[in-house]
């Protein structure tokens, strides 16, 4: 099974989680902003979204 899943972005509300590096780490102002940012990135890149139990979002891409 070859699944090269890639994390494109990590969208969080907690400043201390934004450490830099790869993937793109984004700090949202509030929950609404977080949802909107995640959705916009996912739509633009035709990617999937995982909502983690702690409230952070991962935007991930599956190769077709």
């Amino acid at each position: 099974m070859s699944k090269n899943i890639e994390i494109i972005a990590f969208v969080t509300l907690q400043k201390e989680k934004v450490l830099g590096g790869n993937p793109l780490l984004l700090l949202a102002a509030n929950e609404e902003d977080q949802k909107q940012m995640t959705q916009d990135i996912a739509k633009a890149l035709k990617a999937d979204v995982v909502k983690m139990k702690n409230g952070d979002y991962l935007v991930i891409s599956h190769p077709r």
Partner: peptide
Amino acid sequence: DSELFVDDLYVTNLLGTENG
């Protein structure tokens, strides 16, 4: 929430957005 179940079996957690 963001998890999909079929006949109570976990399938995926890729439904992170409300649209999805």
